[in-house]
Every structure is written in C-alpha cells, then in structure tokens.
C-alpha cells in the first residue's frame, strides 16, 4: 500500500506540487490525470525517489521512503515517461542488468528474466538490441523491467503515450492482468484510459488535487456525464472557459 501525505516540490521560487495527499491500496488502479505541466511527472518522481521532495512523506507499506529509500525502491516498479532503456543492450542483457541491480543471482535471476519476457510477450526479440526495436516493443522492455521483481507497487508515467491502438490495448491488458495483486498508479492525459483500466481517478491541476473518486462519481460532477467535460471544468481557468 502506498500513502502520500502533503507532498510538495519547489523549483526555485515556483511551487510545482502544492501539497498532494492520497493513498492507493492493493487491488486498486489509480488513474493520475491532469493537463500537461500539472505536476503529474514531478509527483511520480518524488514517490519513486528520483527527485527529493521539498516536504511531505511517502509511506510504502507503512515504511518511510525518505528515511530508507533503498528499501522503498525495492518495493516499487517504475515505468518512467518515454520508457527509457539502454539502446545498445539486448533485451535479455538489459533485463539481466536490472535483475542484478535488484539483487537476483543464478537460477532465480534467470527465472525472473524469463517470466518478465513471457509476461510482456517479448520471446521473439529477447536477443535483439533494444535500439533496433519498434516503439511498442521498447515500451514493453521498460514495462518488463518494472515488473521483473513482482513489486507490490507499480507506478507508470504515461505508459501508452505514442503507441498505436493495438499496442495501447496490449499495455492495458497487461495492467488489468496485474491489477488484483498490486497497487498501481497510472498517469495519463488520455481520458478513455480511465474507463479502460482505472478503479479510481485523481485529477491534478497546477500542483493540487482537484478531484478524487471512482470514474462514475467524477462523471456525475458534470451535467453531461462525460469525463471530458469534468476534466475541462476542473482544469481550465475561468477566463479560458
């Protein structure tokens, strides 16, 4: 379970994340919505320990991620924006590196790599270098590194961004398959995604949470009952409306 309390981030004089609090339990898929620049990525980077928070706490299974970042990171899988990976490495070489950094050795390491490759359906490309793969496969390579250690918490930053409809479908299938056993956060600005995979959604705008509820309760906030209208209503300034 992941618990975020009053998380703040300041870059110079600008406060980008202004006190974000929420929890995600096992079995939940939390959609993290907001316009570009709302603070989604910064929030996720603070949760995963990539950026230090200016203030606030992150509790991973009840343990403080600031006090013991290494233990917290071991419980999280993270798919960063744009799914980075080392392009000169092969798929299996890359996953082997990730497995070693995560502390796996010998037969357990091999089993972990094989399982991750199987789950992400990458058997045909396992010995190909990542730089030669299509964007959809690169996304899956990065997805595979995020789930290699079967983490109780999975955090994904725009996992379907830039993929074609079939690839999007595959990624959503993978998320749905894992949903019951993990606490998952998925950030997106594609609203159809919320209906497709999320059990709950948070809308963040200018660094603050402006809505938090199931897709149905969010929809009920607009007379039209459409998620697009709710999103616009909450994230577009009065003068722009």
């Amino acid at each position: 379970m992941l618990e975020v309390k009053d998380l703040r981030k300041q870059f110079g004089a600008v406060e980008v994340v202004k006190g974000v609090s929420f929890t995600v339990d096992k079995g939940e898929v939390l959609g993290f919505l907001g316009p570009n620049g709302a603070g989604k990525t910064t929030t996720m980077r603070m949760i995963t320990g990539f950026l230090p928070a200016t203030s606030g706490t992150v509790l991973v299974n009840g343990k403080d991620a600031v006090a013991d970042p290494v233990a917290a990171k071991a419980l999280m899988g993270y798919l960063p924006e744009n799914a980075p990976s080392y392009h000169s490495m092969t798929v299996s070489g890359f996953l082997s590196f990730i497995a070693e950094v995560r502390g796996y050795r010998g037969s357990e390491k091999r089993d972990r790599i094989d399982a991750a490759i199987r789950q992400c359906r990458m058997e045909p490309v396992r010995n190909q270098s990542i730089g030669t793969l299509s964007k959809g496969f690169r996304q899956r390579v990065c997805f595979a590194q995020a789930i290699l250690h079967d983490p109780p918490i999975l955090i994904m930053d725009e996992p379907t961004d830039g993929l074609d409809p079939n690839q999007k479908h595959t990624v959503r299938e993978m998320i749905r398959r894992m949903a019951s056993t993990k606490a998952i956060i998925v950030s997106t600005h594609i609203l159809e995604e919320v209906d497709a995979v999320c059990t709950r959604a948070i809308i963040i705008n200018q660094g603050t949470i402006v809505a938090n509820g199931t897709p149905a309760t969010l929809r009920a906030q607009s007379p039209s009952g459409r998620l697009d209208d709710v999103f616009r209503m909450l994230t577009v300034g009065k003068d722009e409306q």
């Binding site: 990539f50 290494v70 233990a71 999280m76 960063p80 924006e81 980075p84 990976s85 950094v101 990065c142």
Partner: peptide, 14 residues
C-alpha cells in the same frame, strides 16, 4: 539525455 538515469536512480541502489 536518454532518461535512463531515471531508471538507474529509482533502482534500490544508493
């Protein structure tokens, strides 16, 4: 540049 630093520094390493 490639953004892989985000992977590296979110691994359980100091």
């Amino acid at each position: 540049r490639a953004g892989t630093i985000e992977l590296l520094l979110t691994m359980p390493v100091t």
